[in-house]
């Protein structure tokens, strides 16, 4: 596969996943802000922290974390490269540049996604007031695209690059949401055991689509178990561990390397991270600082992304 094409498939997949994650996070913030005791606007700042766009936001809007500002920034802002609109547009631009490599169904699904988001921009004001229906559509479009990829693309190189992009993005986003929310909800470990704001903890799980699967696994909501579920669960497809494990498989499929071996630095780092996740336990993580753990995890994910790019997309001629 042509390097540039692999690059575009990887990124288009990342952008779709990113748009979905932003949508989910906004949706949950919106739902939990309604009827809550918290100061209304305080609800919205974490959204900006979680997407890593705090500096860019403050530079333009200062401390104005009002619903209007934040949601417009996160959904429709053209200047914000991580807004839903920008992500979907970038995904489509990537798709368009490699249109011939995609199945027709996939291209059309991405094109439709883009058209719907563009149309929604016309009514941005109304949507920012009550974004739920729109966000549902974003999530559904993303799921449709994931489904179309699985069902219509040959499970070869392109598919593996798409999958790799998706799980790296997802691992990053789950870790960010966990980091931001966990810290907000439980700033001090000594508070463990005090009365929990069940609504807020449910919201954290909901924002990663994890609530029902968590309930099946653990039932009662306990902060440590919530962390365990999102960091280390073997089977939940949005847990950090699951994503890393799938990412490792994709890399091995791309190079044909046997399990436990590596043929390049991306595989090596991914394998090391995977082992770390496989043999970690939640008590150690929490005792040594969840924030520190998540921080180093994100850094490693970033580095792996960089290596993937160097090895597959911009090789020395």
């Amino acid at each position: 596969m042509i390097c540039r094409v692999a690059d575009s498939i990887y990124w288009l997949s990342r952008y779709i996943e990113r748009a979905e994650n932003i949508a989910r996070f906004i949706d949950v913030s919106q739902m939990s802000s309604l009827g809550g005791r918290a100061i209304r606007d305080a609800q919205w700042a974490p959204l900006i922290y979680a997407s890593g766009d705090e500096a860019a936001f403050r530079e333009r809007f200062g401390d104005d974390f009002s619903q209007q500002r934040v949601l417009h920034f996160a959904i429709f802002d053209e200047q914000n490269p991580n807004s839903i609109f920008s992500c979907v547009r970038s995904a489509r631009e990537n798709a368009r540049s490699i249109r011939g490599e995609l199945s027709t169904a996939l291209w059309e699904a991405i094109n439709r996604f883009y058209l719907r988001v563009t149309e929604a921009r016309v009514a941005a004001g109304t949507i920012v007031e009550n974004p739920h229906r729109f966000l549902e559509r974003v999530k559904r479009s993303s799921h449709t695209i994931v489904g179309v990829v699985v069902a219509t693309m040959s499970h070869g190189e392109a598919w593996n690059f798409a999958m790799l992009g998706r799980v790296l993005e997802r691992a990053d986003k789950t870790s960010r949401i966990l980091d931001v929310k966990y810290f907000t909800l439980l700033p001090d470990l000594s508070l463990v055991g005090s009365t929990l704001d069940i609504v807020q903890w449910s919201a954290l799980l909901e924002s990663t689509s994890a609530l029902h699967m968590y309930r099946k696994r653990f039932g009662k909501i306990e902060p440590k178990q919530v962390a365990e579920f999102l960091v280390l669960d073997r089977d939940f497809p949005r847990s950090m561990r699951f994503c890393v494990s799938l990412g490792e498989e994709c890399l091995r499929a791309l190079t044909g390397t046997a399990p436990g071996m590596f043929s390049n630095s991306a595989e090596q780092q991914m394998g090391m991270l995977n082992s770390r996740m496989n043999y970690a336990n939640i008590d150690d993580i929490v005792n040594n600082g969840l924030h520190e753990f998540v921080d180093s995890f994100q850094q490693q994910i970033n580095e792996i992304g960089g290596e993937v790019s160097k090895i597959f997309f911009q090789p020395e001629a």
């Binding site: 596969m1 042509i2 390097c3 540039r4 692999a6 190189e157 997309f313 090789p315 001629a317």
Partner: peptide, 8 residues
């Protein structure tokens, strides 16, 4: 040659 992920 075309640059591919598997070499030229």
């Amino acid at each position: 040659w075309v640059k591919t992920t598997q070499g030229p």
